[in-house]
Amino acid sequence: MAETAHMQVSDEVAISIQNMNKWYGTFHVLRDIDLTVNRGERIVICGPSGSGKSTLIRCINALEEHQKGSIEVDGTLLSSDLKNIDKIRSEVGMCFQHFNLFPHLTILENCTLAPIWVRKTPKKEAEETAMHFLEKVKIPEQAGKYPGQLSGGQQQRVAIARSLCMKPRIMLFDEPTSALDPEMIKEVLDTMISLAEEGMTMLCVTHEMGFARQVANRVIFMDAGQIVEQNEPEEFFNNPKSDRTQLFLSQILGH
């Protein structure tokens, strides 16, 4: 398993965040974030609630705006220029905690919507790509159903397939398994692991530490808007250096 962790990490920089600060009004929610993600790296971000980890990854695809510092994704600087935002969003895919599938469209239509209207792919081609990715997440037979008819785990896998249909180079996961029943967590994590094995660059906010150990190159611990500690998974879990990391780990690994 440690093999997977070191495989396929190149030197090319996928995401470069420098001195990034964000305020909500006067509340300083992200402070002096410096982070460089290489292509092929898998990073797990953990931390207590309110630490800003979701805010951080939402800044990367411009769902949130940052006031200071710079974020560069795939060589494109994230600014208020709409063209840059569009470019970044088509290279970065995101999965949400509450799936956010479009309930009025079938599974297949959910997956083909963006390729047709953003990448202007012909419908037939988009549908073939969609079926390919639905097979990859192991639910091709659900293509004609509506999201309301699927279980939570199936919906999240569809959400992953939907993002993959845009052929992103980076995937962001915002607590993808937190809203799932325990018996469905494994199927989603398995999907994410197979994505990782294919070399996808991933940033994952999650509490699933088993997943982190298995797949991550780096685990980052955030607290109060700052990156407090980051390290390889083995070192991070066995030898946490900061007090706050130790406290957090004892709380979530305890049960």
Binding site: W23, F27, H28, R31, Q67, K68, N217, N231, K241
Partner: peptide
């Protein structure tokens, strides 16, 4: 890769 923060960044007012 390894990094440990030694000093906290204090909250600052927005620009």
């Amino acid at each position: 890769v390894a990094f440990v923060r030694t000093e906290d960044v204090p909250p600052a007012p927005p620009p």
